[in-house]
């Protein structure tokens, strides 16, 4: 298992390194990084001082060396707006997004498993058709639109829920999570349904029935575990997409997460903070992929063997 982890870690490191270098070069591609770092109103003297201070007059390779060195020490520089360490700001905002992401995926997975299994159990029935249509619609709804309509109806119109997410308390979670969960729930339901239909028509289900297994056992014990792998793959992709969604949702609801921080730092030309956030996101996705691979191995013995071979 550890050999497997090691190998996966190395192969997943590649995207991470690519992102690191990509961010570095992206900034310098536009010509003068100072333009990105400094506010537009900076005077030429300030600009010169900035360049010297940050070693922007060194060679590209020296700069890259500094950059990578800084990363290894988790030093991304300071925020242009607040002067705080960029790394600190990013790490502070991260848990808020994690909470959002975690609750969203929990609801999406549980919901998808229940609805998808039910639909697969009675394929082409009315319930199946309705749930298919609804899940397709859910997968197609623009989250930002859903969010503001939700705010309009529930917060402004009915006054049931708060309009922003910073007031705390359970009520302020409802709209952000509901907005974020819609797409993953829709997509995952369809995937689970498809995988369960395959699993339920497999020969081992027939065998189980011939042993006297009831429907509940067939669905939950036999079919579900076999349907889990494709669902896991899609869930992993969705988690990546969740970062996309988080950006929009956090912006609309003022949720103090890393998505909002990224947008704010972009608009505020705070490239140091942006870099820190981007890297933090990349690392978490990297960790996520490893967790998913572990999940595959846990589910299916054949994967375990292929991996330790």
């Amino acid at each position: 298992m550890t050999g497997f982890l090691r190998r996966r870690a190395i192969t997943s490191l590649l995207p991470l390194v690519a992102v690191l270098l990509g961010v570095f070069f992206l900034a310098r591609l536009t010509g003068d990084p100072a333009n990105l770092y400094l506010p537009v109103s900076a005077t030429p003297e300030q600009r010169q001082q900035f360049i010297e201070q940050n070693g922007l007059d060194d060679s590209v390779w020296a700069q890259m060396g500094d950059y990578l060195w800084g990363i290894l020490h988790l030093d991304f520089g300071e925020s242009l707006r607040t002067g705080e360490s960029a790394a600190t700001m990013a790490l502070r905002a991260f848990p808020a997004t994690l909470q959002l992401a975690f609750s969203t995926m929990l609801i999406a997975v549980v919901g998808a498993v229940i609805i998808g299994s039910w639909a697969a159990y009675r394929p082409n029935s009315i319930a199946d058709r309705i749930s298919s249509f609804l899940s397709m619609t859910a997968a197609s709804v623009p989250d930002f639109w859903f969010a503001i309509i939700g705010v309009w109806i529930f917060a402004v119109g009915l006054g049931w829920l708060p309009t922003s997410g910073v007031t705390g308390g359970m009520a302020s979670w409802v709209l952000p999570v509901a907005t974020l969960v819609i797409r993953p729930l829709g997509v995952l339901t369809q995937v689970v349904r498809g995988a369960m239909v395959s699993a339920l028509s497999a020969p081992y289900v027939r065998l189980a029935r011939s042993k006297g297994a009831g429907d509940l056992r067939v669905v939950t014990h036999h079919a579900l575990r076999n349907a889990a792998a494709p669902a896991l793959t899609v869930a992993g992709d969705l988690m990546v997409g969740l970062v996309n969604g988080a950006v929009v949702v956090e912006t609309i609801f003022g949720w103090p997460g890393i998505g909002k921080l990224m947008i704010d730092s972009i608009l505020g030309r705070d490239f140091a903070v942006l870099q820190a956030c981007v890297l933090l996101t990349a690392v978490s996705i990297f960790v996520l992929n490893i967790l998913i691979d572990i999940g595959y191995a846990l589910l299916d013995a054949r994967v375990r063997e292929k991996v330790s071979a």
Binding site: V240, V243, V247, M262, I263, I266, V278, A282, I285
Partner: peptide
């Protein structure tokens, strides 16, 4: 693919 497309696009 391992990167959120929206983010990439925004940057």
């Amino acid at each position: 693919l391992s990167f959120p497309s929206l983010l990439m696009a925004v940057v």
